[in-house]
């Protein structure tokens, strides 16, 4: 990264591809018991196919609200939003439900699995709802569960699994319809460090295969796995940084500087 990168927004190398996500002046205010709280204040954003973007910031900065707006889990008060070139900000719930089934997978902090369905049924359900044949749904499910190291757990109920395993089931469910966009809201927020590493390894693997991912996290170690980090403060993008790429750490900085043991 060049030293003057601070001023320039981290726009990926210009490509004619349609952004998976494009937002213009996106706004959302929460109306709770007290005064209205602006959560997202005029956000402009573009995410290109294949990007892995992390959104970090203090709690209450509005980063989860931003993700929810992009996934249609909340509706904006103002601004425009496109998913894969399609203008969606005025969509009602029914159309959002269809769009999510087809194009957007979502993973939450607390997994949100259906507790009285088996692991297999949790993963197959969105495929069946999308109109896939039962056989094709079973095949996709089997493939994903094997990939995620959950072979043999098909008949288990979510409550019988560890947090890390439940999150892997949630990941399989989110990916079963091959969505253009995977949204992850603090995906390791309720996992121990082993579960965190596991989720991170899997996200990285899917990203390497071309999956576009947007992840909200307060954990810098999680964020540094992404190739672009958006810092969100007070409902606004404070910084938008591309990671990696031609950085020359000085003699006292960078990775060897932080590892050197001093007496």
């Amino acid at each position: 990264m060049s030293d003057d990168a601070t001023a320039a927004p981290a726009v990926p190398t210009a490509r004619p591809a349609t952004p998976i996500v494009r937002a213009e002046g996106l706004t959302k205010t929460h109306h709770g018991e007290g005064a209205p709280v602006p959560a997202v204040r005029g956000v402009d954003l573009s995410v290109q196919p294949g990007e892995f973007v992390a959104v970090t910031g203090p709690s209450g900065a509005g980063k989860s609200t931003l993700l929810h707006l992009i996934g249609g889990l909340q509706r904006p008060d103002g601004g425009k939003l496109w998913i894969d070139g399609e203008r969606v900000d005025a969509y009602r719930e029914a159309r959002w439900a269809v769009l999510r089934r087809r194009s957007i997978g979502v993973v939450f902090q607390f997994f949100n699995l259906v507790s009285n369905l088996t692991v297999a049924d949790n993963v197959e359900l969105p495929a069946l709802l999308a109109g896939v044949s039962p056989k094709a749904a079973r095949d996709s499910r089997a493939e994903l569960l094997a990939e995620l190291g959950l072979e043999g757990r098909e008949r288990a109920m979510p409550g019988e699994l560890s947090g890390g395993e439940q999150q892997r089931v949630a990941l399989a469910r989110a990916l079963v319809n091959h969505p253009a966009l995977l949204l992850a809201d603090e995906p390791a927020g309720s996992l121990d460090s082993k579960g965190t590493r596991e989720v991170l390894r899997l996200l990285t693997r899917f990203h390497q295969r071309g999956q576009t991912i947007m992840m909200v996290t307060h954990d810098a170690r999680m964020a540094s796995a992404a190739d672009r980090v958006i810092s969100f403060f007070d409902g606004r993008i404070a910084d938008d940084a591309q990671l990696g790429g031609g950085r020359r750490p000085g003699p006292s900085g960078g990775v060897s500087g932080v590892l050197e043991l001093k007496e």
Partner: peptide, 22 residues
């Protein structure tokens, strides 16, 4: 100050990334 913070954060995040790879 905010530009300083942003610049410093970018450096730390890049180092964090290098450490993960290591």
């Amino acid at each position: 100050p905010i530009a300083l913070i942003n610049k410093q954060r970018r450096q730390y995040l890049n180092t964090m990334r290098d450490l993960s790879k290591l």
